[in-house]
């Protein structure tokens, strides 16, 4: 007799479970039905997407980067390649001044290489998004994008020419009508880039 009651009590646990499932069935869904719906930019704001360069406040198409190479050496996976911008050729006046200085026996004053990158290539396929480069950058020129829907079909799709990307982004921001104080770093990314930058000659 006792075993019958125990069996009934045991079976009751199945009814309880079905009741929970039934109740949950009537509740609205909790998932985001991509691609019919997308995650809100606010929800993606803290997400670390592929890194991007941050432009100067005055000229958003030019990066703050001073080509100090700290990010290159900090990166665990060697996914960043930066070269310095070439030293400009000395003007005739400078050449003349240099020659004069040499004639006087002084050290000629050569023009210093500009503190700006010539190329800035980033291989997202190697990146583990650890944030070492973002942390180490002395001028805060690197930030995370919040591009969570990035896709590519070729390996080259994930190699970014960051300077070109920054220029494109700045142009796109200029073109679109002004919103309330667009911020360089935290503004939600504009339309997801359809064709990612093809591999530059890296």
């Amino acid at each position: 007799m006792a075993s019958i009651f125990r069996t009934l009590a045991d079976l009751w646990s199945l009814v309880v479970g079905l009741g929970i499932t039934g109740k949950e069935f009537c509740k609205p869904g909790v998932t985001v039905h991509y691609p019919r719906a997308e995650v809100t930019p606010e929800a993606a704001a803290s997400f670390r997407g592929p890194i991007e360069l941050i432009g100067l406040d005055k000229d958003p198409a030019k990066p703050k980067c001073i080509a100090c190479m700290l990010c290159v050496s900090a990166c665990p996976s060697n996914c960043i390649a930066v070269t310095r911008a070439p030293t400009p050729k000395p003007t005739p006046e400078e050449l003349k001044a240099m020659a004069e200085a040499e004639a006087r026996g002084e050290k000629p004053k050569k023009p210093a290489p500009p503190k700006a990158p010539g190329t800035w290539t980033y291989d997202f396929s190697l990146c583990s998004l650890c944030g070492s480069c973002v942390e180490v950058c002395p001028v805060d020129s690197i930030g995370f994008s919040h591009d969570i829907y990035m896709v590519g079909t070729r390996r080259e799709d994930f190699v970014f020419d960051q300077l070109a990307r920054l220029a494109r982004k700045a142009a796109a921001r200029k073109a679109e009508p002004k919103k309330a104080a667009p911020e360089a770093a935290s503004a939600p990314a504009p339309a997801p880039e359809t064709a990612a930058t093809p591999a530059s000659e890296a």
Partner: peptide
């Protein structure tokens, strides 16, 4: 050590 850190997440 700093470069090895991302490995620890994996």
């Amino acid at each position: 050590p700093a470069q090895f850190m991302p490995n620890m997440g994996r």
